Simulated assay, not measured.
Amino acid sequence: MYRVFIVEDDGKIAAILKNKMEQYGYAAGTASDFRDLLTELESFGPQLVLLDINLPYFDGYYWCRQIRSRSNVPIIFISARAGEMDQVMAIENGGDDYITKPIQLELLMAKVRSVLRRTYGEYAITEGRDIGESPEGSMELSTGGLRLLMSRNELEWEGKRVELTKNEGLLAECLMRRPGHIVARETLLEALWDDVQFVDDNTLTVNVTRLRKKLEELGLTKAVETIRGQGYKLSLEGPKSGGAQ
């Protein structure tokens, strides 16, 4: 069961959101101490945070930065501020998505499901010491000796580690879930972007190229194969290091 922590100082709105989350089978908690949100967050251990911007003492941008200094737990901003710059600031301060008030609850739930699906996939989440993390500090996906530390966005191979961007981590997760199999470009696009209609196909190519470079830093050359006209395939069976570029 995913845990959703709601940071909203309007008690009525917080109650509506909590009730909606529980209707969909999520465990929901609401903030009560707006001076010390991190303590409540760490105690609850959420896999997703719904965060208002206008809060007592410190605004949502501040708390988003504080959370990001400790965790990669997904954050969806909920705010009456509908301006473009407010949404830009939310993303630049570490938010994953943004929805404006008055809240369309079904749209919110679609965003919640999308963010949880992209971040955690079908893997069960274990409550840990850090926000949204296991006791070892990460959700792990591994294949052929390659490990993806999902909550840290890191790849590990033979004792070496590299940090990934959010998109690189999502690409690695998709490919590692089906090692040796072709993953269609459309599948990868949908995993990275909710609305693929306006995404340039070259954007995916750029992100795959960046992931390849990270794998090469680990000594894994030619690990991501391009299957022309179909998609990409993760192959860890060939030469791993020192091979031709």
Score class of each variant (00 low, 15 high):
His181Glu: 05
Ile182Trp: 03
Arg177Cys: 02
Leu148Asn: 06
Arg152Gln: 12
Thr165Leu: 08
Leu170Gln: 03
His181Trp: 04
Glu186Cys: 10
Lys166Gln: 10
Glu156Tyr: 00
Met150Arg: 09
Arg152Glu: 10
Arg152Ala: 05
Asp194Met: 13
Leu171Asp: 02
Arg161Ala: 11
Val162His: 14
Glu173Thr: 10
Asn167Arg: 06
Gly159Lys: 14
Glu168Cys: 03
Arg177Tyr: 04
Pro179Cys: 01
Arg152Cys: 03
Glu158Val: 00
Trp157Met: 08
Gly169Gln: 02
Val183Gly: 02
Leu188His: 07
Glu173Lys: 12
Ala191Asp: 04
Glu173Cys: 07
Ile182Arg: 02
Glu154Cys: 06
Pro179Met: 01
Arg147Met: 09
Glu190Asp: 14
Glu158His: 00
Arg147Ile: 11
Gly180Gln: 07
Gly169Glu: 01
Arg178Asp: 04
Val183Pro: 02
Glu154Gln: 13
Leu188Gly: 07
Gly159Tyr: 11
Arg147Asp: 08
Pro179Gly: 00
Leu155Cys: 04
Val183Met: 03
Val183His: 01
Gly180His: 04
Glu163Arg: 15
Leu170His: 03
Met150Tyr: 05
Arg177Val: 06
Cys174Arg: 12
Val162Pro: 15
Leu175Phe: 11
Arg178Lys: 10
Glu190Trp: 13
Leu170Glu: 04
Pro179Gln: 01
Thr187Met: 13
Asn167His: 10
Glu163Asp: 14
Arg161Trp: 11
Gly169Pro: 02
Glu186Ile: 14
Leu155Val: 01
Asn153Lys: 15
Arg147Pro: 06
Glu186Asp: 12
Val162Lys: 15
Trp193Asn: 06
Glu173His: 11
Trp157Ala: 08
Arg177Thr: 06
Leu171Gly: 02
Asn153Thr: 06
Glu186Tyr: 12
Arg185Met: 13
Leu188Ser: 08
Thr165Ser: 11
Gly159Met: 12
Leu188Thr: 08
Glu156Thr: 00
Ile182Leu: 04
Gly169Leu: 01
Glu158Ser: 00
Thr187Tyr: 12
Leu155Glu: 01
Glu173Trp: 09
Leu155Thr: 00
Glu190Ile: 15
Ala184Cys: 05
Arg161Glu: 10
Ser151Cys: 13
Leu155Lys: 01
Asp194Thr: 14
Thr187Phe: 11
Leu171Met: 09
Glu168Tyr: 01
Gly159Cys: 12
Lys160Pro: 11
Asn153Leu: 10
Leu148Val: 04
Ala191Ile: 04
Thr187Ala: 15
Ala184Trp: 07
Glu156Pro: 00
Asp195Trp: 00
Leu188Phe: 08
Leu170Cys: 05
Ile182Asp: 03
Glu173Phe: 14
Ala172Ile: 07
Arg185Thr: 14
Cys174Ser: 13
Asn167Glu: 06
Lys166Ala: 08
Glu190Gly: 12
Arg147Lys: 12
Cys174Leu: 15
Glu154Pro: 03
Asp194Pro: 11
His181Lys: 05
Arg178Gln: 08
Met176Glu: 08
Trp157His: 11
Lys160His: 15
Ala191Arg: 09
Leu149Gln: 14
Arg152Phe: 03
Leu175Tyr: 13
Val162Met: 13
Glu158Asn: 02
Ser151Pro: 15
Leu155Gly: 01
Lys160Asn: 14
Arg185Cys: 13
Thr165Val: 06
Glu173Tyr: 10
Arg152Lys: 09
Met176Gln: 08
Lys160Asp: 11
Ala172Thr: 05
Glu154Phe: 03
